[in-house]
Design a protein around this nucleic acid. Structure first.
Lengths: 157, 157
DNA sequence: ATACCTGCAAAAACTTTGCAATTCG
DNA sequence: CGAATTGCAAAGTTTTTGCAGGTAT
């Protein structure tokens, strides 16, 4: 139930986008994109670096940063707004929302259909033109609700 | 039109909170809180440092970081989620929303009443307990819409 | 008085840049 | 082959830490 034509989708997306933009389809780009696409934890560049390096020993941190920028530019990833001083990436570019733990910073996804859809405000007085939106729900995750537990930020997935 | 009892409000808030928590009401805390409270541009720690240092020459960057943490802890400020690798602070702790320029990163406030209120989702299957929310509207600010202009991030207020 | 705060210096964490060597199309 | 891309080393930012001296209550 996951035939070749279906499982090839992710790789194809990258390949298509590269071809369309005249970009080289390198091993590094494939590996970083693949790692990001299969994760649901909104990893930082460094987490991705650690993970990919296991399979691709020569990989450099610099390349990971550059590939992530390129993926964002190509519309294959997004930077997730977070209250931390690290940039997190999200492979999901369709509209969706987030649950943000105020205690440890953990980020969970929330599908769009759980939230009643908002009308996009018309152009604002300031001249700002809205294109899309995303809702952040703040609260406390299950780990942090356990009394006495207060996971360090570094401990978070 | 801003009598003494009214203009004292802000300072009092800090004073009260300090007393209540057994914290010292220092010059530095007053200055940082005051600077943040009067700004509407969601400044970074460094911007605040620059601004406050003008009035308080001996001030150190370290102190600004520490005071900002303390203000957040005391409920007198919030960290604004942003897609950058810098933390921005917001003196407004009531519910409100943001307009985020995808081109230059500029942040504008949007009053809560402009957005239809969302029901806070009940506890999620994951165990996450939601307490509040905030909507980020993504788009393009007036400065970035001017053709040919693409303000650098560093150029942003 | 004394517990808390600040400033300094140094380090840590995160990200970007310039350039030579390598790889992709 | 030629242009684009990578890796390395080094520098740039942003934030944190330890400690000695100073300050608020």
């Amino acid at each position: 139930m996951d035939g070749p034509s279906r499982s090839a989708t992710r790789a194809d997306t990258l390949a298509q986008e590269c071809r369309r933009r005249g970009l080289a389809l390198t091993v590094q780009r494939r590996a970083v994109h693949d790692e990001l696409a299969t994760r649901k934890d909104h990893p930082t560049a460094d987490r991705i670096y650690e993970a990919v390096r296991a399979r691709l020993p020569g990989l450099s941190r610099t390349t990971v940063y550059r590939v992530l920028d390129m993926l964002v530019e190509a519309g294959l990833a997004r930077r997730v707004p977070s209250a931390d001083s690290v940039v997190r990436f999200d492979p999901v570019t369709e509209r969706h929302h987030h649950l943000v733990c105020e205690s440890c910073g953990r980020l969970e996804d929330l599908e769009d259909r759980v939230v009643p859809s908002l009308k996009i405000p018309a152009a604002r007085p300031s001249g700002f033109k809205v294109r899309s939106y995303s809702v952040s729900f703040m609260g406390v995750c299950s780990g942090c609700r356990k009394p006495g537990r207060r996971p360090a930020r570094s401990e978070v997935t």
